[in-house]
């Protein structure tokens, strides 16, 4: 296996590790850090794919990822939690060891799922599709199990990371226009979430999503 292929595999493994770390992390500040690291790894893997396949526009994608996901979004989130003064997520809905076990089951499921596709894929990105799918599912799991609105949103952003990784590794990146569109969506989405956080807190005096049960009509 070529060096770049091995590099990508290593990066993919790190990505999966970070996804598990996020699943188990209850401090929101650390969660944001982990998210930023995920961005670093993602942009690194994009550069490697760009170098090994010689696709120029993937460099742009890598730079964009680095800017947006390593600097801008973490910074916005950081500001948010300072303003909102939330540091800790309370107890998750299910306890953490159980979540980890469910996560492992999800990873096995994702690999099983990706196997027939990986068998046909190019050499460089052979095993990454399974990992990317696993990242998406793990992030989704995190969204389900968290109670603070901020961590739900971080889960959402991490899910988008997984998708982007799947796109770069399996098909050498999406068309530039699509990628720009997604980047913009994520940015705007974060702003909107930020505004909602304040509204949620004003309405319920807390960022706990359980309070939104009151919104249900009977």
């Amino acid at each position: 296996m070529s060096l770049s292929g091995q590099l990508i595999n290593v990066l993919a493994a790190i990505l999966l590790l970070i996804a598990f770390a996020m699943l188990s992390q209850r401090r929101i500040l650390s969660l944001i850090e982990l998210y930023a690291w995920q961005g670093v790894v993602l942009s690194a893997s994009t550069f490697v794919v760009a170098y090994s396949t010689g696709q120029g526009d993937l460099y742009f994608s890598g730079v964009l990822t680095a800017l947006l996901k390593v600097i801008v979004l973490p910074w916005i989130l950081y500001r948010l939690i300072h303003r909102l003064n939330v540091r800790w997520d309370v107890e998750t809905l299910i306890n953490i060891p159980t979540i980890m076990l469910i996560g492992i089951a999800l990873v096995i499921f994702a690999f099983n799922l990706a196997q027939p596709i990986s068998a046909m894929a190019g050499a460089v990105t052979r095993s990454t599709l399974g990992i990317a799918t696993a990242c998406v599912l793990l992030a989704f799991l995190m969204m389900i199990t968290r109670r603070k609105a901020v961590s739900v949103v971080i889960g959402f952003l991490a899910m988008e990371n997984g998708l982007l990784f799947a796109a770069t590794s399996a098909t050498y990146g999406m068309p530039m226009v699509v990628e720009l569109g997604i980047a913009l969506d994520v940015l705007v989405g974060t702003f909107i979430f930020g505004i909602f956080f304040f509204h949620i807190r004003e309405t319920f005096d807390s960022l706990d999503v359980r309070h939104m049960e009151k919104l249900k009509e009977d």
Partner: peptide, 13 residues
Amino acid sequence: QVGRISVYLMYSF
């Protein structure tokens, strides 16, 4: 429709 975000996310998951 129970009103809990986690459950709604669970449905889509």
